[in-house]
Design a protein around this nucleic acid. Structure first.
Lengths: 183, 183
DNA sequence: TGTAATTAATTAGAGTACTATATATTCTGC
DNA sequence: GCAGAATATATAGTACTCTAATTAATTACA
């Protein structure tokens, strides 16, 4: 029982270290390319799904609408995106990248530390898959809370892991359509 | 090569989902107990290491000193902690929990989702250890960047995993000294 | 048709987190 | 003892993120 608690603590500690590492990396990017990780993610999403609305971006990148509005305001001020009213539905705002915006994403660096990426690439295949599977599993276990009235988890039931295997396989099959930002 | 990039993307996506889940949970805590996760972490740390200075707290919880000052200001306003000048070295500020502060940590809920914790506890032992090992490994791989002139990573070298085994074992041995916040 | 409910985006307000800078204090070397 | 270096904390400024409330536009239904 106490061991369980110590282990759960370890989970939180490890996650907070990861969060901090990602945040620090994001701040370094500001100096090297003038954009933060969230800004690059949003810019890329706009490029990927041509001329999306604010809400669509929010759904795609899993952030609140208010956050996207916030980030877009900054990107717009720097001339990387434009906001125009939707023709049919005037409540909607259509977002597009400018030429300047396209240019800056083209040369945007990797969203994860170079050291992490090289370390990751040096792992054996099964180790890579195991890492990703673990991360996705944790993400899923945390996400479950929001699914009110989710499928019954009987006490003692083993966590389903299949969704992640599926997601992983899907990503492997569709990777040819991904943009290359990692050299 | 392209598969590698898709996998690295999967890592970032999974981590961002985890970050968001933790943030959302933290915001829910504000309603249930009036404190956020970082506030609880800081409060607990003050309790644990009796009367620490601001810098000591920052080191213990791996946040910048400015962030701790920020959080302490809020905790002080609500009467959960006090700040007093150190007797010998007047640059230092000694932080202590008030009675009100001790009370509120006593009834503070878990820092991770209940669903996550119950899911985690239902995992087999090796699955729990595997999850934690993966998280710690990711944290380590990301942290490595900050260690300028770190031990040479020859191209093709396998990532060392031992530091985490050690950390894990240490936590298992010392868990009896941990406070019980998870029922 | 016209009001009510819904939907889309923004605004307001708060918390976390950083870097860089300022301020106060202590230590060091002369 | 005192000027300059080092240390500890606080402040300023920025960005991300959320929820809740507002504004504007569309849809539904009576």
């Amino acid at each position: 029982m106490e061991i369980q608690e110590a282990l759960v603590d370890q989970v939180l500690i490890a996650i907070r270290k990861i969060i901090r590492a990602i945040d620090l990396h994001s701040r370094k990017l500001i100096k090297s390319c003038g954009l933060t990780v969230p800004q690059i993610i949003v810019l890329k999403e706009i490029e990927k799904s041509k001329a999306p609305t604010v809400g669509q971006i929010a759904n795609s990148v899993s952030l609140s609408q208010a956050t996207i509005t916030n980030i877009l305001t900054r990107l717009e001020h720097r001339g990387y995106v434009t906001r125009t009213q939707h023709d049919d539905d005037k409540r909607r705002v259509v977002v597009r990248t400018t030429e300047k915006g396209k240019e800056v994403i083209g040369q945007a660096p990797s969203l994860l530390h170079d050291k992490f990426i090289s370390s990751f690439e040096n792992l054996k295949d099964w180790e890579q898959l195991s890492l990703i599977s673990s991360l996705q599993r944790v993400a899923w276990m945390m996400d479950a809370e929001d699914l009110e009235a989710s499928p019954v988890l009987s006490p003692g039931a083993v966590m389903p892991i299949d969704p992640y295997k599926l997601e992983l396989e899907r990503s492997l099959q569709s990777n040819s359509s991904k943009n290359k930002e990692v050299k």
